[in-house]
């Protein structure tokens, strides 16, 4: 490893269709003193973009079909002499697992010192992971909200149909849920289906 190369800042390209996530990864990397050349969605001529931007390293979302494109650069590169080495060449399987789990992987365009690259990948993995848990929390919140509105709808239908108050409607729904061994939202769904059928 040559010292001069070692001191040059590493230029990074981000390939990710999740714009928010890409932005958060960029923010963290920039804050840590790395240079992010660009963020790209997966479908826009990856090879052309690499030629244009000449990155030292590409961080790519596992959901991008572009991974096969990147892997080709090291072998089909008679016209593009830059070697590409996948970082996961490191023989630590736990490391590959962490990257696959988080959904991100990295390709190096030059022979960079793994010690310099590792913090970048660690950062990306951490950002992808926190995005993942954020996403899960958001999905969960949305699911709860959707369930709540289903229950409300079923209650309103029951109240109208049987001319009962909200408390009674809730009780009816709860009894149905227990009797039929369904969750409350599922019981509400079947009530809605049934009511809508009988209306028609």
């Amino acid at each position: 490893m040559i010292d001069i190369v070692d001191n040059d800042p590493i230029k990074i390209m981000l390939v990710d269709d999740h714009l928010e996530r890409a932005a958060s990864v960029e923010e963290k990397l920039t804050a840590a003193g790395f240079i992010v050349l660009c963020r790209l969605p997966t479908t826009t001529g990856l090879l052309h973009q690499i030629e244009q931007h000449q990155p030292d390293m590409v961080l790519i979302d596992l959901q991008s079909p572009g991974r096969d494109v990147l892997e080709s650069l090291s072998v089909l590169s008679h016209h593009n002499p830059k070697p590409v080495v996948m970082f996961t060449e490191e023989d630590d399987p736990a490391y590959i697992e962490a990257a696959v789990d988080a959904g991100v992987t990295a390709y190096l365009m030059d022979e960079l010192n793994p010690k310099r690259v590792k913090p970048i990948i660690d950062l990306a993995i951490a950002q992808f992971k926190s995005y993942q848990s954020l996403r899960q929390a958001l999905d969960e919140a949305q699911r709860k909200l959707a369930n709540q509105s289903i229950i409300e709808k079923a209650k309103v239908l029951l109240m109208k149909k049987h001319n009962i108050d909200e408390n009674k409607a809730h009780k009816t729904l709860r009894t149905l849920s227990m009797d039929t061994n369904q969750s409350l939202p599922d019981a509400a769904k079947s009530v809605i289906e049934l009511m809508e059928k009988t209306v028609v």
């Binding site: 596992l62 572009g66 096969d68 696959v100």
Partner: peptide
Amino acid sequence: VSWANIRDK
């Protein structure tokens, strides 16, 4: 979506 993913997984 990619053979690389399949291999890694």
